[in-house]
């Protein structure tokens, strides 16, 4: 009667088939369009920073969202990262619906469409892979905001310049973790150096190769934020009922 499956390594394994029969039939996310991260970037920099989001571990607590705001002095109503949360109808199962959460932030794309559009070359990809905005040069034209396929950019209404996730470059340069990673309650956000073969990030990516996905792979942006547990229905624009959230105030 006693049933003790052997512990599974990080990344987990499917539980034994003997279990869960009473709730059987729950569709499992099928693996498709898996993208394996490009190995080390051209040797222009020692580092190539990237992130892995293990959706299975995300609890939708928005600690990342708020810590990012506090760390980076993001104005009210704007977000560099947010965890979209969904109620998803489940078919063929006793369970009628389920919760799906999806942390979103700038993907620090290797082919970032936000970069070439900039009329003053204020935004660029650094040698270490981080896509940033030079706020001394940005004219606030918002062209990059339009060009980002992930809604990852916005105009900061306090600085009147383009704003986005910087992978907390100021912390990373100081040998620290980005704020959202540091405070991720579920431990879903894993940050590190894609070029460091012994780093936790690289090891997790390698160990979960077949589970990895990125958002909107068809756009050819080569995101450097990878996901485990990314349901296909959420890789692009989500088909469904939109949020009731409304911007609180307009800026003027």
């Amino acid at each position: 009667m006693k049933h003790s499956p052997s512990p599974t390594p990080a990344g987990g394994a499917a539980p034994s088939a003997s279990r869960r029969n009473f709730l059987r039939g729950i569709p499992v996310i099928t693996a498709a369009a898996a993208t394996v991260p490009t190995s080390a970037m051209a040797e222009t920099s020692k580092h190539h920073w990237g992130m892995l989001v293990d959706v299975r571990k995300c609890i939708g607590c928005q600690a990342c969202t708020v810590s990012c705001i506090q760390e980076n002095v993001v104005p009210e109503g704007s977000f560099r990262t947010v965890v979209s949360t969904y109620s998803v109808k489940v078919k063929d199962s006793v369970q009628p619906a389920g919760t799906y959460v999806l942390p979103r932030l700038c993907n620090h794309c290797d082919e970032p469409p936000c970069v070439p559009v900039c009329p003053v070359s204020a935004t660029y990809k650094r040698a270490d892979g981080i896509v940033v905005v030079n706020n001394e040069r940005c004219v606030g034209c918002a062209y990059c905001v339009q060009a980002c396929p992930y809604d990852a950019r916005f105009i900061n209404h306090e600085t009147n310049k383009a704003d986005k996730c910087t992978f907390c470059a100021h912390r990373v340069e100081a040998g620290l973790l980005p704020a959202c990673v540091e405070t991720c309650v579920g431990g879903a956000r894993i940050f590190g150096d894609l070029n460091d073969p012994n780093g936790v990030l690289r090891q997790q990516l390698d160990a979960n190769k077949d589970k990895l996905k990125v958002l909107k792979p068809e756009q050819g942006t080569k995101p450097q934020v990878y996901y485990i547990g990314l349901d296909e229905r959420f890789t692009g624009k989500v088909e469904g009922q939109g949020t009731l959230w409304k911007p609180r105030a307009t800026h003027g």
Binding site: G60, Q62, G77, F79, V82, V83, S84, T85, Y86, S87, V88, K89, K91, Y100, A142, V145, Q146, D151, F154, I155, R233, V238, E239, G240, Q241, G242, T243, W245, K246, P247, T250
Partner: peptide, 17 residues
């Protein structure tokens, strides 16, 4: 009735006014 209902997300403002 949508099979997916977004319960939390934020709207991006119009950037080209």
């Amino acid at each position: 009735m949508s099979t997916i209902v977004e319960t939390i997300n934020v709207a991006r403002e119009v950037a080209w006014l």
